[in-house]
Design a protein around this nucleic acid. Structure first.
Lengths: 337, 337
DNA sequence: TAAATTTGCGCAACCGTTTGTCCAGCTATT
DNA sequence: AATAGCTGGACAAACGGTTGCGCAAATTTA
């Protein structure tokens, strides 16, 4: 392997000092035009490329952003990472990836390694059961800013970007009401999740808007597993009032619910209408896609979070001015429905 | 920001040379036990952490693997990257991500940046229309080995891991034949793709195995768009022989086809049976999942490709001994079918 | 014409860690 | 007691690039 050309190499060949070469390559005005040209020409000829690792080391900056998230196979995150990557690349940053697979221990380990790799900043979406945030707190000591997105910790002094399900839920329920549905079931997520609470609030507000009474027994908590969804469906279909529409926690849950309904001999979109969350691209591949789905803008969330992080890094935003962005969700009605 | 402790700092405090501290921390036998302990204790006390960027620079090694692939939102790739990440992490490597979004120009740019970041090696799955491989060839000069996976270039001297669709196709068609189907349609991909050719060969061989005649007019090329799939379906359903089963290029195509069939009033699994490729997790969410799907082992491909790359980097495998691994695909029958 | 300023470039330190070499003092050998 | 062999550690260079400072020559200003 023929060693790569360095600044020193160029300097030697032209009988110049390394510093002169460095400045010449950066078009420093104090270097004469004549020398500047000579240097740049030889650099081109030798196909000189600055050694980034040397620069990283010297400048104490790696132009690398660490991303820690649960699962890329979840459509939400794979969309979010595109927003992150595109934004980062525009500012010449690269993206170091780590999946926690929803395991806190792994999350801690990833953060540790990223810290050692001296990433300039971190974008994080928490593992499902992370409740201790020490591994993020310690990053302050290393001056590595963190911006959380989507799954954010329950802490005051942090930067984050998250979406609010309330607005989308209001729209979803309102749509169903407007189409004449009066008994609307909701398959909600785990009770303690903020995302579940927001859905409940949205449901309540939508009813209130039409001066209708909210019936808590129509709002069933489940845990997103197929099993649990089927139980919820059973409960809803057995309700004393006849449920004609269902708001499902997300598109996956919606599909499980549809399957159950079909097994019960119900006709989708006639006996029972579905609305859900996520607006997955795959819903267009479904035989019975939901009537509408609440969009959470994963790409946008990734983009905004990255923009904030970059502003934090460039000093455009002070580190202690906590950015907390909430993106309103919005209902997207399936084309032609 | 209180400056982080360095080896020099420790050396100064203990009146030692930096070199001694370095060796002490590495448990070098030439350093007396007494000093070793003192150093390690102070290091712990100061919470010393070696500056990786300095080490990277000095060792000319970054413990970073670059990943270049088309789209993480495709289930195949998001599964593959998990295999890559898990394997890399086991050897203390990190993963630098870049999506080409199937754009060759972008692919070139990403490779360039990764080269500048001095990744130790590269794992690549090509953009759809990349035909010129200069941006990979030039990596030889920088001594950065590349292992391709799944979408591999048409070149002799490369390392790669790819799957062969032939075996899975034979199994798929054989299954249908065994279940009594005699007129089997195939919605294939673009003609020039190796993956399409392998499917065709598999189809032919399966027929041959049963001494049946292969009818080329039942094997229709499409380009994976919904539009194109619907055209293919139209063509197949209008065939003079009555098609009772269809092998679709992948699960997405399969769903488009199912949708079309439903619109035509056909009953899935009775009038028409589907088999496809990919075995996406989402197929379990489909109202009409394919009877069976050919598994391409994305996780395994990512894992094997990474293992090879790591062996190349560690010198366990010589760089010029080209590793070309073909993973046979395998039919997975949907549970209970 | 002398003084002041500008121009063009070299010198040297520095970032943090690793590693080859050298050396002083001690121990052991004969 | 002289020599050889260890032991434990220091010194310095190196990785590649950046940057503050100094200084001579050229140019402008008074």
């Amino acid at each position: 392997m023929p060693n790569l050309p360095t600044i020193k190499e160029i300097a030697k060949r032209l009988n110049l000092a390394a510093s002169t070469v460095s400045r010449a390559l950066h078009n420093h005005p104090r270097i004469g035009l004549r020398t500047r040209m000579k240097v740049q020409e030889l650099a081109r000829e030798l196909q000189y490329e600055p050694n980034q690792t040397a620069i990283f080391f010297q400048q104490k900056k790696t132009f690398t952003l660490g991303i820690v998230l649960p699962e890329l196979s979840e459509a939400f995150f794979s969309a979010a990472i595109s927003g992150i990557e595109d934004t980062a690349n525009k500012s010449n940053y690269m993206v170091l990836l780590g999946q926690s697979h929803d395991d806190t221990t792994r999350e801690q380990k990833i953060v540790e390694i990223m810290k050692n790799h001296r990433v300039d900043g971190l974008l994080v979406s928490l593992a499902k059961n992370t409740v201790n945030y020490a591994h993020f707190e310690m990053l302050r000591k290393y001056n590595i800013p963190v911006v959380f997105f989507d799954r954010i910790p329950n802490m005051p002094s942090i930067h984050y970007v998250a979406s609010n399900m309330e607005s989308g839920t209001i729209q979803a329920v309102s749509l169903l009401l407007q189409r004449g549905h009066r008994v609307i079931g909701m398959i909600n997520g785990p009770e303690k999740l903020t995302a579940s609470q927001q859905r409940t609030t949205g449901y309540q507000k939508a009813m209130q808007l039409q001066r209708l009474k909210y019936d808590a027994s129509l709002n069933v908590n489940a845990d997103l597993t197929k099993e649990s969804t089927r139980n919820a469906m059973q409960q809803l279909l057995a309700h004393k009032r006849k449920v004609t529409a269902i708001v499902a926690f997300n598109d996956y849950v919606s599909q499980d619910a549809v399957q159950y309904a079909l097994e019960q001999g119900l006709e989708i979109n006639k006996d029972l209408t579905f609305v859900s969350y996520a607006n997955l691209p795959l819903s267009s591949y479904m035989a019975f896609p939901p009537l509408a789905s609440v969009e959470q803008y994963p790409y946008l969330q990734g983009q905004r979070a990255t923009e904030i992080l970059l502003d934090l890094l460039s000093g455009k935003l002070p580190l202690d001015q906590y950015q907390q962005i909430v993106i309103d969700s919005r209902l997207v009605i399936a084309p032609g429905r």
